[in-house]
Design a protein around this nucleic acid. Structure first.
Lengths: 251, 251
DNA sequence: ATAAGCGTTCTGGTTTACAGAACGAGACGA
DNA sequence: TCGTCTCGTTCTGTAAACCAGAACGCTTAT
């Protein structure tokens, strides 16, 4: 549902914050030009944000501060799912030596709640808090497979089916086929659909009611996740991690 | 410096966000009462924030979403100091088996940039992004010890010397004595000054210019950090971690 | 020297945020 | 079953405040 009486000033502030996140570090004039606002307006917003700790001034340039991490970290820490899953994702990373991830759905997008690196883990561009289209990752497909068809339709309607690599899913038919497969097999795979050469295997975590809470995964370069291996040990280990989390969530 | 023409609407939005962070989950009426605002104003702000992904509605209550973690995570990831220090803090935790931390100063407060748990690590209430008074932790004292005296004065002026436990520093004289000691010894210690029974040892990380970038630490229960041991292996290991980070920052 | 660029300050007109009242829906008890 | 209380939401006029634009120092480049 959209806001019937949105606060336009707040929208401007948020747009400014998001622009600053994209740019990294910016001057007043540059931001004003980028966002079609007057310099004074931009300046007023920035100084207000600075006073509250959300923005820092370094020389003549402004940049986002760590206050966002404070709030975000607090929100994450207060999440039961994160608290319960965290140790299990860590041991998943330790056991496999690869990169283990935890995802939840929010507003139709996938949010990485955490990532834990094992000894050999690849270092890709993800970070805790990062958002991604659900259809482009194994984690996302594991979640989508256990939402109602109308929820999935609504999400596709809202966010589209953008392609990240030539392997990405980009039609509804492909997506629904893939989700059927996930439900049958019990876990989802991603073979270079978001990052070329990266394979990923993910299992859903569900409440005993059947509602999906999120998903767990392990990512590794294709060279270490061969076609044969993929469906053996790694799948086994990811499913067991998901199962442990489910048990601990349901007490 | 304070904003000469602050955007009051933005301030209201931020106050609302911070209140929501404190409360966890709240209804419109409760928030309106808490903040002395009309219900319609609170509602307008919340729906605006919701539309942008910063706030979620669950039933009739509103709560903060993970968008803050997205922005905060992005800011952290873009920080050179974090990128460089991260692997070293991880191995510090792995080697000692305890809780290793990384802190930077922002707006006169200490911000935990990361925490990494070793096998036996205590689980305390800190989280990445959390802010704390600098004078209450070894990490903070390691930073303060390498700021100019007027910076330290300004920080004390701004944030005061609040006590967390009976052991906390709470006078300027005590603080400056402690900082002298830190400079002489090369590292800072905290013996139950923030959390009773928790000992902590921290070393500053400095640019070759002498400017302090932040600090690294290891925390453990007093039972595992005896008086004798504290200044031997742990101190050695923390100093070496700080040194490695310094070398990698300065290329 | 001069000019061009920046961030910052100032002001008034007009956009717009918001108090307060009214509405609809659900929960509860009589 | 009905009335009552409370919640989130919608609506409206008016008082407030956001902001374009111009002006001001300041630094840097020509």
């Amino acid at each position: 549902m959209n806001a019937k009486h949105p606060v336009q000033t707040t929208e401007k502030t948020l747009t400014l914050v998001e622009e600053l996140m994209g740019q990294g570090s910016c001057g007043v004039t540059e931001l004003a030009a980028e966002l079609d606002m007057g310099k004074s307006a931009v300046h007023n917003h920035l100084t207000t944000l600075q006073e509250r700790g959300y923005v820092l001034k370094r020389g003549d340039e402004y940049q986002l501060g760590l206050k966002f991490l404070d709030i975000g970290g607090h929100v994450r820490k207060s999440t039961e799912f994160y608290q319960v899953a965290e140790p299990e994702v860590k041991s998943l990373a330790a056991d496999t030596g690869e990169l283990a991830n935890l995802m939840v759905e929010e507003q139709g997008l996938g949010v990485y709640l955490m990532r834990s690196k094992g000894d050999m883990a690849v270092d890709i561009d993800t970070y805790a808090g990062m958002r991604t289209h659900l259809h482009t990752t194994a984690l996302g497909k594991a979640i989508l497979a256990h939402l109602s068809e109308e929820r999935v339709e609504a999400i596709v309607e809202r966010h589209g089916l953008e392609r990240k690599t030539p392997q990405s899913i980009d039609t509804r038919a492909e997506l629904f086929d893939a989700l059927d497969e996930v439900r049958e097999r019990g876990y989802a795979i991603d073979d270079g659909e978001r990052v070329e050469g990266l394979r990923c295997i993910a299992a859903p975590v569900k409440r005993s009611s059947g509602a999906v809470l999120g998903s767990v995964s392990v990512s590794a370069p294709a060279s270490r996740f061969s076609d044969d291996d993929l469906h053996a040990e790694p799948a086994e280990r990811v499913l067991s991690a998901a199962n442990v989390i489910e048990l601990n969530m349901n007490y």
